[in-house]
């Protein structure tokens, strides 16, 4: 039991979504709150509070102040909470392992209301960004992606294992909002990218590239083999390419000794027919 609690405590540090470092995050992209009107807002806060109390407070504390099991969420902003909940990372059954993407527990409205409730507890942090892809330049996005994202997520977005049992998750199946949130908040092990490193326009471009071309890669050449590159290609080349050719060699080079029992090509002897007799003089005996 002690081991488990220890692991949980460790994990709460490991997977802290920047609890202690909500710095100049306010100067972030052209984000607007996703909420519509005041009465809706109040209703959402109320719903968010209920959901938070039921699903999140056991680890993060009743006022999101954090506990041994989960980090402080105050001041993180709606964007961070939205990312962690909408991606299915939260709620987390076992805090000792890196959360993986799974179907979200809450629908879009519920997620937004939780995020807004947490954001209402303390100022600061990133609001839920609203991404407008009109006019986005996916070529610029590709370029920025290759410089800043591909080192961990791979250039095809397949994701890969990092050191210490962590990993950069696959980008297949992410939403535009999640990409924007992740770039700005740097969830878990991911660095955060400021507006200097990736400008608001560039962020839109990156989101455009990820949601259009990483999500739906152009693969006119056939099966894409998971986008993991030469490793998978090598296996296909060896086991399918060389393998099939060797099987063909097996067919071509196999001796024909089964084919003819009696030396008369046209004889339609059924399988299991007469055993070869010694009556034919030209047949040598082994």
């Amino acid at each position: 039991m002690g081991v488990v609690v220890g692991a949980l405590a460790l994990a709460s540090v490991l997977f802290s979504p920047h609890a202690a470092t909500a710095g100049p995050g306010a100067s972030l992209s052209s984000a607007v709150l996703a909420s519509a009107s005041a009465p809706n807002h109040r209703a959402a806060l109320s719903l968010g509070r209920t959901l938070f109390d039921e699903n999140c407070s056991s680890c993060h504390g009743v006022s999101a102040q954090g506990s041994a099991l989960g980090p402080n969420l105050r001041g993180l902003g709606a964007g961070t909470v939205d990312l962690w909940v909408s991606s299915g990372w939260m709620p987390l059954a076992n805090p000792a392992i890196q959360p993986i993407r799974k179907p979200a527990l809450f629908d879009r409205a519920q997620t937004t209301s939780i995020a807004q409730y947490v954001a209402s507890l303390a100022p600061g942090g990133l609001p839920i960004p609203k991404v407008d892809l009109a006019g986005a330049n996916s070529a610029e996005g590709f370029s920025v992606f290759a410089l800043n994202c591909a080192p961990c997520h791979t250039v095809t977005g397949a994701g890969d294992a990092l050191a210490d049992g962590l990993s950069a998750p696959s980008l297949h199946g992410v939403t535009a909002t999640q990409v924007a949130e992740a770039v700005r908040t740097g969830p878990g092990n991911m660095p955060r990218f400021s507006t200097f490193t990736i400008s608001p326009t560039q962020l839109t471009d990156v989101v455009d590239y990820v949601t259009k071309h990483i999500e739906h890669p152009s693969s006119p050449g056939g099966l894409s083999l998971g986008g993991v590159g030469p490793v998978a290609e090598g296996f296909v080349g060896l086991f399918v390419g060389v393998g099939v050719c060797v099987l063909i060699a097996l067919w071509i080079g196999d001796r024909n000794e089964r084919e003819d029992t009696d030396g008369h090509g046209d004889a339609h002897s059924p399988p299991g027919g007469e055993p070869p007799s010694g009556s034919e003089p030209e047949v040598a005996h082994a």
Binding site: H213, S219, L223, G229, G234
Partner: peptide, 25 residues
């Protein structure tokens, strides 16, 4: 089976890199 989809990889620059880089087998 698609092999080496270079359009997905982009132009090489010495300061850019992708994870999961391997040579051919």
């Amino acid at each position: 089976v698609q092999i080496n989809p270079i359009w997905q990889y982009g132009q090489y620059y010495p300061y850019k890199v992708s994870y999961a880089v391997q040579p051919d087998w």
